[in-house]
């Protein structure tokens, strides 16, 4: 039977779906029975998602946003002055 400490040790591999199936079963069994690990993992996962969503490259970002011409001009001038 896994302990909470084991769950912590395997957590990133579990989230990456790279745990061997036997270890994954033991992991999931512990999480189902443990009142602390499930909520912990939910928050751990959410912290990762917050970083990804705030700082990550937005693949679905509209590529058609208006080009800010004034800023482009400032940047190109700064390249020339550099």
């Amino acid at each position: 039977m896994m302990t909470c400490k084991d769950v912590e040790r395997f957590l990133d591999d579990y989230l990456a779906e790279s745990l061997p199936w036997g270890t994954r079963l033991k992991f999931e069994l512990h999480v189902r029975m443990c009142r602390d690990c499930g909520p912990y993992i939910a928050r751990y996962r959410r912290a990762i998602e917050l970083g990804q969503k705030l700082l990550g490259e937005q693949e679905d970002a509209p590529a058609t946003d208006a080009v800010p011409d004034a800023l482009v001009d400032v940047i190109l001038k700064s390249l020339d002055d550099d």
């Binding site: 084991d6 912590e8 009142r35 602390d36 909520p39 912990y40 939910a42 928050r43 959410r46 998602e49």
Partner: peptide
Amino acid sequence: DCRIEPRRPPPPEAHTLL
């Protein structure tokens, strides 16, 4: 080796939080 962790409700979705 049991976790010492305050009991907390499930967090809202990331996009809601952001």
